[in-house]
């Protein structure tokens, strides 16, 4: 599948502010299953853009607007080819193969708490209702069961939580948005000793039923030993397939927030986000393919 994505973030300040410094995690990743063929970031007021690769391999952009301004608009346009194929469960995997994996030692961060992924009594209660995979148990099936438990037991409702809901709050309310569901699933994995990380990205809505398509999306990946990092979307209860575009990974939302920043001025501001993910038709795909061949 080939997608074009437009992601616009706009801040409005009632009183002009100055010295805005902003970090953006907006560039889709290029890896074995997807390739970002085009990426363009535009900022208004104009600012010089800088980029670096962070420790997770994400391409991060940052910029500063020093003079006074009362709006700040960040528009990212990207084209991504996804070759993941249809959703499918990986082959079963006995849990101990994760524990014995030589890479486990270096994944310390993914089996411990992080800013938004905290262990708590609510989490332990949820985990014991799902069960902790022991020796011989299939970790793949368990991962799916955990995601399902969230999907079936939690209400997707935007506006119930702030951006910074804790795992404790999300479980207590049994409500949240994709980000909260991802944090809860990650917390379940980590508490069970399975490395897990946060993924931010986009989902293309094939049907009207897809949740989270109107904004940037988030899900979780678990490190399943020899199977590598495997993603599940607890919001839509599905393995990650070609409808998904990965943008950035990290310990939790804090590491990969699409746009965040600081500025000098009064703290009140309003933010609006628009995301459009369009799949190119086969004809369009052929066209852009030809275009690329010529280059």
């Amino acid at each position: 599948m080939r997608y074009t994505i437009a992601h616009r973030t706009r801040y409005r300040y009632p009183v002009p502010v100055h010295e805005s410094h902003t970090i953006a995690h907006l560039q889709p990743r290029s890896d074995l299953a997807q390739y970002c063929t085009r990426f363009e970031l535009s900022v208004s007021p104009r600012a010089r853009l800088y980029a670096y690769a962070d420790r997770y391999g994400n391409d991060v952009h940052h910029f500063a607007v020093l003079p006074e301004h009362d709006t700040l608009e960040v528009v990212a346009r990207s084209q991504v080819v996804v070759v993941r194929g249809a959703a499918a469960a990986p082959a079963a995997l006995p849990r101990e193969l994760i524990d014995d994996d030589p890479a486990l030692d270096e994944l310390w961060d993914y089996v411990h708490e992080s800013r938004y992924v905290r262990f708590c009594e609510e989490l332990d209660a949820l985990l014991s209702s799902i069960g902790i995979p022991g020796r011989g148990d299939d970790a793949v099936a368990w991962f799916r069961t955990a995601a399902q438990a969230i999907h079936d037991g939690f209400v997707y409702e935007s506006g119930t939580t702030s951006v910074h809901a804790t795992v404790e709050e999300s479980i207590a309310l049994r409500r949240g948005v994709c980000q909260d569901f991802a944090h809860v699933l990650i917390a379940l994995c980590r508490r069970a000793g399975i490395p897990a990380r946060y993924v931010s990205g986009y989902i293309h809505s094939g049907s009207g039923e897809t949740l989270g398509a109107e904004a940037s999306h988030a899900w979780a990946e678990a490190y399943l030993g020899p199977r590598g990092w495997i993603g599940i979307d607890p919001t839509n209860d599905t393995w990650i397939d070609e409808q998904f575009v990965r943008v950035a990974t990290g310990r939790d939302y804090r590491d990969v927030a699409p746009v965040r920043g600081v500025y000098t001025g009064p703290s009140s501001s309003t933010m609006s986000v628009d995301v459009a993910v369009e799949a190119l038709s086969p004809a369009q795909q052929a066209h852009t393919f030809a275009e690329q061949q010529q280059q």
Partner: peptide, 10 residues
């Protein structure tokens, strides 16, 4: 100051 770490990284 905001951005010092960027200057440092650069």
């Amino acid at each position: 100051a905001a951005g010092i770490f960027n200057a440092y990284r650069a």
